[in-house]
Amino acid sequence: MTLQLMAVEGAESVNRRSRTANRIHGGPAAALGFGFLLIGAVLVALPLVWMFSTSLRPSAESYRLPPQWLPTQLHFENYSAVFQSSVPIVALFLNSLKITVAVTLGQLVFCSMAGFAFARLRFPGRRVLFILLLASLMIPNQMTVIPIFLIMKALGLIDNHLSIILPGLVSAFGVFMMRQFYLTLPQELIDAAKMDGAGAWTVYRRIALPLSGPALSALAIISFNATWNSYFYPLIFLTSWEKMTLPQGIALLSGYMQSGNPAVVMAAVTLAILPILFVFVIAQRWIVEAFVHSGIK
């Protein structure tokens, strides 16, 4: 026993020594690695910095080389030009917001309910139904867009936000994520409630749901981001200016103005990205965690 302890202590002191040695030895290598990290971070940030500073300069100076990276002037007229352009940017923003909020809220309700049932309720066929749902994870939504287009056409929902919202409410990934979370709840908690005569709805509503804050917020973040950024479905289903989403509008604006007015285009892109940056700075910890969760099952 004591021998073992001594051995451990010995190893630790060797370890401590070698670590300090390593720090001195690894000095240049570590500095090099750190240098790479810093240069990489600057390279990653530069396109966004360029976007921002270009949006604040008169359009005539957008093409001036060598490029000026930092905002040297503060011309906000590009931003007012965005609002006065033929692209109804406020309406597009509200469209995107409406679709995204509807899809996210719907997913939170439906995925948590289905996830709870698959994790904690016993019903015939549970396993098969779950595996079938899980298998749909590998069906890309580009695959199914043609029949969905035909369905929406038959229902008269082309150029209607419902054509984006309805298919968006289904998320096998969300159901899976919530199920995995509900499996981690202690069984005793649920048994105790059952013993007190609580039905399935009460267990879900009073016990499971109040505990699912972290899982729900992770799902909300993933779902919000995916819907807010989506381009493929809106491009196919939404055809009029009044119904389009923000990414569609920015892509069209860029097409119109590219040759003449990069500053206005960059102002529009800045307006589209700033809310994301703002939210990211505030909720960074949760967002990063949500994405780690989405990656590691």
Partner: peptide, 15 residues
């Protein structure tokens, strides 16, 4: 309980 189970997965499954 089984009935509730089917009810809970119903919206997701129809979708």
């Amino acid at each position: 309980e089984a009935l509730w189970g089917f009810l809970f997965i119903f919206p997701s499954y129809v979708g």
